[in-house]
Design a protein around this nucleic acid. Structure first.
Lengths: 125, 125
DNA sequence: TTAACTGCAAAGTTTTTGCATCCCC
DNA sequence: GGGGATGCAAAAACTTTGCAGTTAA
């Protein structure tokens, strides 16, 4: 039986609506200013729980674990200049294609794109 | 200037040709039996170096960092039953497609498929 | 010879866990 | 009141780093 908790609610609210895919530590640091008693363990526990419940997604990137409030199927773009992680629409249906050559069961797919993000492009690098 | 080292060679050889994407710890454990003096630091150092040189790839998955001797563009399948990580051919050219809707520069892409692997399918789960 | 590489151990990072306390239901 | 959730600190898991000794070129 799941009970309401101010902390979990705060964590969810802090994550919802943003697209920068913060790490647990970032969320903890930000929330700590509003809830000085908040402990890191609570943040980690709740993020794991929310993920388990399907309310958020976890993106494990080299060097960091990030969290994503967008649970719709979508892909990510990783900028090799600034490290930003951007959302990308899934334009191509590669699921069906993958399934056609595979004797297992392909249930879902996400792609990772690498390159230089629009912002870094503007800085003409 | 890069010098030959028995340890690095052993690490490379241990990784080449296998498709199970072992972790650093797995490689260390396996090599340790053949080279009792081998230290974990050496394994980590060399794996990082080999990755930097483009000789192997690192796959960061939830729960583990795995290494892949296949440096050709390819995707991975993650079995949610047994945790296996299998290689998948990239059948669809989604790079071009992604670039057409994105003002940054898309340089590369890998996809991650999730589902049940052929072996687990056979166990009729 | 000498610069790269190793082994070892210590330290670092990130996340998890044990436990007493707290607070929704 | 009872069980889930929290805070704290200790521990765990994994990886990196410092350093003295070793080895390839």
């Amino acid at each position: 039986m799941v009970k309401y908790s101010k902390q979990r609610e705060a964590i969810k609210q802090k994550l919802i609506g943003r697209t920068d895919h913060p790490t647990a530590e970032t969320l903890y640091a930000e929330l700590k200013t509003e809830m000085p008693n908040l402990s890191a363990a609570t943040v980690y526990r709740n993020l794991s729980q929310l993920e388990e419940w399907g309310e958020i997604h976890r993106i494990v990137v080299e060097g960091a674990t990030r969290f994503d409030p967008n649970v719709q199927p979508h892909s990510h773009f990783f900028c090799r200049k600034c490290g930003a992680v951007l959302d990308m629409k899934d334009d191509v249906d590669i699921l069906k294609q993958a399934q056609s050559n595979f004797s297992g069961k392909v249930e879902s797919c996400t792609s990772r794109f690498y390159g230089i993000c629009p912002e870094c492009m503007d800085m003409n690098n």
